[in-house]
Lab assay of single mutants.
Amino acid sequence: SPEEIKAKALDLLNKKLHRANKFGQDQADIDSLQRQINRVEKFGVDLNSKLAEELGLV
């Protein structure tokens, strides 16, 4: 269901964000992850996106 997909995506992105902060990645990478999280919260996951591929939806 779209809600489950959204939850999985947010979980994955939050893990990536945590790792980025923990290991001191570029601020641009961290900002990009934050924008992705905001986009998923607002609009859900686009099944044509790279994120959908990472989640194994495509």
Rank of each mutant, 00 (worst) to 15 (best):
N48F: 10
L13A: 00
K8N: 04
D11M: 11
R35V: 11
V45H: 01
E41P: 00
F23K: 09
Q34R: 14
G24H: 11
Q27L: 09
I30W: 03
I37C: 01
D11G: 06
S49L: 02
D29P: 02
G44Q: 01
F43I: 04
I37R: 02
L55C: 02
Q34Y: 11
K15I: 06
G44W: 02
F43S: 04
F23G: 08
Q27K: 11
A7R: 13
N48D: 10
S49R: 02
F23W: 10
Q36H: 07
D11E: 15
S49Y: 02
H18T: 11
D31M: 08
S1G: 07
D26P: 15
A20Y: 11
K50I: 07
Q36E: 14
I37Y: 05
F23I: 11
L12S: 03
K16M: 12
V58N: 11
E53S: 10
A52I: 06
L12W: 12
K16L: 14
N21Y: 14
K16G: 02
E3R: 06
S49N: 03
L17R: 01
K16R: 11
G44I: 01
S1R: 10
E3M: 08
S1E: 07
A20F: 11
L33G: 01
V40E: 00
S32W: 13
L10Y: 01
Q36C: 13
L33D: 01
A20E: 03
I37A: 02
K6M: 05
R35D: 14
E3S: 08
L57Q: 03
E3L: 09
N38Q: 11
Q25I: 12
A20T: 03
F43P: 00
D26L: 08
L17W: 04
A52R: 03
K42V: 08
K6N: 04
A7E: 09
V40T: 04
Q25M: 15
E41W: 06
K6P: 01
N38I: 14
S32R: 15
Q27T: 08
R19E: 14
N38F: 09
N48T: 12
D46H: 06
R19W: 15
F43M: 07
F23S: 12
K50N: 08
V45S: 01
N21L: 15
Q34A: 06
N21I: 15
G24A: 07
S32Y: 15
E53T: 09
I37K: 04
K22M: 14
L51S: 02
L12A: 05
V45F: 04
E54I: 09
R35L: 13
L47E: 05
G44E: 01
L13I: 02
D46P: 08
F23Y: 14
I37D: 01
K22W: 06
G44K: 00
D46Q: 09
K22E: 13
K42L: 13
G56T: 04
I5D: 04
A9K: 00
E4F: 09
L17A: 02
G24R: 07
D29T: 15
L55V: 04
N14G: 06
A28Y: 10
L13S: 01
K50F: 09
N38P: 00
L55D: 01
E3F: 06
L10T: 01
R19P: 01
S1W: 09
I37E: 01
R19G: 07
E54N: 05
L47H: 05
N38R: 10
N48W: 07
D29M: 15
L10R: 02
K6A: 04
L57G: 03
L47R: 05
R19L: 15
K6L: 07
I30N: 03
R35H: 12
S49V: 02
V45A: 01
D26C: 10
Q25D: 10
A9M: 05
A20I: 06
S32N: 14
S1P: 05
V58I: 13
E53D: 06
D29Y: 15
A52K: 01
N38W: 14
N38K: 14
L51C: 03
G56W: 05
L33R: 00
I37P: 00
L55N: 02
E54V: 06
G44L: 02
L12G: 01
V40R: 00
D46I: 05
G56C: 05
L51R: 00
E41Q: 13
K8Q: 09
